[in-house]
Design a protein around this nucleic acid. Structure first.
Lengths: 239, 239
DNA sequence: TCGGGTCGAGAACAGTGTTCACGAAAGCGC
DNA sequence: GCGCTTTCGTGAACACTGTTCTCGACCCGA
């Protein structure tokens, strides 16, 4: 941790590079982050960047990880804020989900970077996994809260488990700090899928114009997803 | 339609080019479809390709559209096969959903092309919209079938509609050949989101290894999604 | 003060998408 | 059949790109 002057300068310029790269990314679009472009932006020779990053893809990877972390931290902050008011888990979920969507919509490029970029080198590094878990942990936490509050219709979810799937889910659950039943994990995944899909639909706008970027639509589907978590069913109206 | 010899040759070689481009794409990966590469594959000069396609991106766009159409046709075929047996709509949905997933999993590259590629020129062409509707129409059709069979808990869905959202959905529904209630449209969208999300989760493998490529997991979430459509809770009648 | 490690610059190489002028071939009206 | 026009493919060229290498200039600890 102790910083020799050299190290300090090094981390400083790597930060500057990443910043410039980010600006370049936003200006030039996703596909062509030009290394020479960021070099130009910094007023240095293109080759100089190789002192800090092994390749163009390495630089891109780092940026993606940073975006990932930003999302994760945002969600965690949202979670903390929501739970601070001692709200029921369902409401917490809704709040976090909205935070998720808000972030995605106001950081479209980052979102696409995170979820739709296949980096040639296929990063399975610990760093990305850590960044990813920042986000997913929040969801799992909420699900655990729901279970604790008995707000989850576990029976309904259990009904869809095959023995093999149940075992695999359990296997995963056992690796977690705060284990939860396989059925709850299934519910969490389904919820995540729904959340993710709802955002994607708007992000890549396969919707007619009057529904594009519609928050009500998002909230409605998420609410319905929550109904499904809890086994809620509308009372058949008298009519 | 009548083919002068010239026209025939022309469409013939454009097909050849697309085929070669596809091969190149699969060999070289998504990011770098090299125009020179496909030219090499065909034994022609790179510049010759410009007689057939305005640019590299135009070629890519055409390929994406073809992939899109392939998916749509596959789904429609699956739908026809499923309905031919006079099965209930719920089962039809499940069958088509599986077909969707199967296609995605066995055509990963195509799937990513379709849903995660932002072409610089932003294609809003009629051609892509038509290709897209091939897929979505199937889903809407099933949803209409469900409504007709009274297999949809419309009240539950209506409960999440705001007046504005309801109006917008209705506005969309009115444009369809076979109009349906706004609540049903909301259900369709939620279902689509869920479906899409469930596939994406596996596609971009943010799952631990024992759950990667797990079909049971997919079927379970889809089944649950269907429960949510129909308003079932806890034990649903076993088939 | 003196070396070894680090940094940045510049040239170079192999690619890339794209343009353009030029011949060769094909089709069409006469 | 002959000419003219349109189409097709070529090869050279331009402006880029990522990446590598060499070569001085600098900082820093000994």
């Amino acid at each position: 941790m102790a910083a020799t002057r050299r190290e300090r300068l090094r981390t400083e310029t790597t930060a500057e590079i990443k910043e410039a790269a980010w600006a370049e990314l936003q200006a030039a679009g996703l596909q062509d982050l030009s290394l020479r472009g960021v070099a130009r932006r910094l007023g240095m020779a293109p080759s100089a960047l190789y002192r800090y990053f092994d390749s163009r893809d390495a630089l891109l990877t780092e940026i993606i990880i940073e975006a990932y972390q930003a999302l994760g931290l945002e969600l965690q902050a949202s979670y903390r804020r929501a739970t601070a008011t001692a709200a029921p888990a369902r409401q917490v979920f809704l709040t976090v989900a909205r935070a998720y969507r808000d972030w995605a919509m106001s950081h479209r490029l980052e979102y696409k970077l995170i979820f739709a970029t296949t980096i040639p080198g296929y990063v399975g590094t610990d760093e990305t996994k850590l960044a990813a878990s920042l986000s997913t942990d929040v969801l799992l936490q909420i699900m655990a809260d729901l279970v604790r509050e008995d707000g989850l219709d576990l029976a309904a979810w259990r009904a869809n488990l095959t023995p093999d799937l149940s075992q695999r889910l359990q296997q995963w659950a056992d690796m977690m700090i705060d284990p939860m039943p396989a059925a709850a994990l299934l519910a969490a995944l389904a919820c995540y899928a729904s959340l993710h899909g709802a955002i994607n639909i708007q992000m890549y706008s396969h919707l007619p114009p009057m529904l594009a970027d519609n928050e009500d639509l998002f909230v409605a589907t998420i609410n319905r997803s929550l109904d499904s978590l809890q086994g809620y069913r509308a009372q058949r109206p008298t009519a």
